[in-house]
Design a binder for these strands. Structure first.
Length: 283
DNA sequence: CACCATGTTCCTTG
DNA sequence: CCAAGGAACATGGT
């Protein structure tokens, strides 16, 4: 899935394109992704609604729309799961096989496609309501981070994936941040020293900021017409994503030498997910 | 066929 | 009650 940086880049891309556009028609092709909203309800509320803005919260996309004859704007919540994509497609182009929700907007279609259908595009706001603070925001202080970590026996890697602790870190950036901070992913959260917590806090912010900077300087193509799909994250096709992948220091580098000490990078499984780390640099 | 995959939620076990 | 681990969700790539 896109983690925080990928969603941030997508939101920045979509915001100016969507602002002022009116939804003419809503086509739900996979009911699961709008649950618990029904197709009737989604269609009734969104038809005639106009996009005001798009924001990101953690890994969620928040679309705000003004609805005719309604006081308050409506919030449409998106989450890309592992394989979700959102882009505008010229009307004459064929729809992708796994188009889950399609909205007609003038000459373009708003397409939410998702091969595995793990993501969401819904009126249900409970997802983003459960999130912890933004890692790049004011609320995410070192003190808050330390207080929360001291109360958990969970391994620090698994803890970083807890979206109620801090929102937006996923499997890739959890490994990357721990490598940067030189902390073992297996260390129980409560056993981190204050200095390590400070380092990890900085590493998280640096890793995320650098990924956003990287994405915002690349010439991304969001057209969705194969090849480069605009999502520059790990696993995407195209030269840009290769360039991006090279920036990851440990993720998916099991068996390769550590860039700092040449020790072989190890892959371990924690909470059923892969973790990559350098057993020498990270103790 | 085997195993792996950017995420979240739910269930079981201890 | 809580934490931890695993399965489920669904599809595709290697």
């Amino acid at each position: 899935m896109p983690e925080l940086p990928e969603v941030e880049i997508l939101v920045r891309h979509l915001a100016p394109l969507l602002r002022g556009k009116t939804v003419r028609r809503v086509d739900v092709r996979r009911a699961k992704v709008i649950a618990p909203t029904t197709e009737r309800a989604l269609s009734r509320i969104l038809r005639g609604a106009k996009f005001i803005g798009v924001e990101r919260r953690g890994k969620y996309l928040l679309f705000t729309l003004r609805v005719p004859r309604r006081r308050n704007p409506v919030l449409l919540v998106g989450h890309l799961g592992m394989t979700g994509r959102i882009y505008l497609l010229p009307k004459e182009n064929p729809l992708p096989r796994h188009a889950a929700v399609v909205m007609e907007l003038g000459r373009h279609l708003f397409v939410y496609e998702d091969t595995r259908y793990f993501g969401r595009l819904t009126l249900d706001t409970s997802g983003p309501c459960r999130l912890g603070p933004e890692p790049l925001g004011r609320e995410f202080s070192v003190d808050y981070f330390a207080d929360t970590l001291q109360r958990s026996a969970q391994s620090i890697k698994v803890k970083l994936l807890d979206q109620t602790l801090v929102a937006g870190i996923g499997n890739i950036y959890a490994s990357e941040a721990l490598f940067r901070a030189r902390i073992s992913p297996k260390l129980p959260a409560r056993r981190l020293a204050r200095k390590q917590i400070q380092h990890l806090w900085e590493a998280i912010r640096e890793v995320l900021k650098e990924a956003i900077d990287c994405g915002s300087t690349l010439p991304l193509d969001f057209s969705g017409t194969r090849r480069r799909d605009g999502l520059f994250y790990y696993g995407a096709a195209g030269d840009e994503s290769k360039f991006y992948q090279e920036r990851l220091r440990v993720y998916d580098r099991g068996g390769e030498p550590c860039v700092r000490c040449r020790t072989t990078i190890r892959r371990v499984v924690q909470a059923a997910r892969s973790t990559y780390f350098c057993p020498h640099c990270q103790r």
